[in-house]
Amino acid sequence: MAVDPQHAAPAGRGGRLPRTARRAQLLVAAQQVFAENGYHAAAMDDIADRAGVSKPVLYQHFPGKLDLYLAVLDQHIEDLTAGIRRALESTTDNKQRVAATISAYFDFVDREDAPFRLVFESDLTNDPAVRERVDRLEQLCAEAIADVIGEDTGLPRAQSELLGTALTGMAQVTARYWLQCGRAIPREEAERLTGQLSWRGIGGFPKHGEPAGDGA
């Protein structure tokens, strides 16, 4: 789970921290530098300075910049996947599930530490390890939604995964567009509009034994 920058260990060269606390501090600093500069322009010196440690201390925990970047990316993938699963498990009402899933993506995109930049807008997507992680995230989120769709509607797995992919794609692209437009629409309204559009599509697939609805 991501560490809140406000609760990260205070910077200060020479201070000793338990290994897990130091690692968390370094990940917070790395997240900030990578989000601000991208992978290629970020320097290990900048990350060490942001964390308030020497570069040898940084290298004790992460042998290279790519290792550090992947650790931050793994953290964000875990966060978003967990958020999607919580949304799906929060209710048995499918209309509310759709709304909760949309909200989970908006939550992720709207975070102050901008983790979505590393996940969805990375300048390192040509790296096989990064590409594999991003693809895995999209697959995990789509599969989580497909599980619910298949269970409720009885649709074949391939069709359920197609619909899950469509819903996750709409959610993350719309949330990023909303942010890029400077939050011109209040977030609650943006989520409502996106959820309404999504539900009018997915709501057309009835649960077992129920007549097809109009998605209203």
Rank of each mutant, 00 (worst) to 15 (best):
Q60H: 12
G12Q: 01
Q32T: 15
D49A: 14
Q25H: 09
A41S: 11
R23L: 12
I47T: 06
P56K: 03
P18N: 10
K55E: 08
D46T: 11
A30S: 10
A51P: 04
Q25S: 15
V53C: 05
A51L: 01
S54R: 06
H40N: 01
D49F: 03
K65I: 10
R50L: 00
A41L: 12
L66N: 00
S54G: 14
S54L: 07
K55R: 15
L17R: 15
A24D: 14
P18T: 02
T20M: 07
Y39P: 01
T20I: 12
Y39K: 04
Y59A: 12
V33E: 15
A29P: 04
F34C: 02
M44V: 15
K65N: 02
V28F: 03
V28E: 01
L70T: 07
A42W: 03
F34R: 11
G14S: 05
Q31M: 03
L17Q: 10
A42D: 02
M44Y: 02
V57G: 06
Y59E: 08
L68C: 11
Q60I: 08
L17I: 05
K65Y: 12
E36Q: 13
K55P: 04
P56T: 12
Y59G: 09
T20L: 07
A51K: 07
A51H: 01
D49H: 12
K55H: 11
G14P: 00
G38I: 03
A21H: 06
A48F: 09
L26I: 13
I47G: 06
Q32F: 06
G38D: 06
K55V: 15
V33P: 02
A42V: 03
V33I: 13
S54W: 00
D67I: 06
A41E: 06
G64E: 01
A29W: 01
S54V: 07
G15M: 08
A21Y: 03
H61F: 14
R22L: 15
T20H: 10
E36Y: 03
R16S: 05
M44F: 06
L17C: 04
G14N: 04
A43H: 13
K55M: 11
V57L: 13
Q25W: 00
G52C: 04
L68T: 12
E36H: 11
Y59V: 10
A41T: 07
A35W: 03
F62C: 07
E36I: 02
G52M: 03
A48C: 11
P56L: 10
D45S: 13
K55A: 14
Y69C: 08
Y69G: 00
Y39N: 07
Q32D: 14
A41R: 11
T20A: 14
A29E: 09
V28N: 03
H61T: 12
Y59C: 09
L26K: 10
R50E: 12
G14E: 01
A35C: 06
L26C: 08
G38N: 04
D67G: 14
A29K: 05
A29S: 10
I47D: 02
H40T: 12
F62E: 06
A42Q: 08
P56Q: 04
H61L: 14
R22A: 15
A41C: 03
L27H: 08
Q60Y: 13
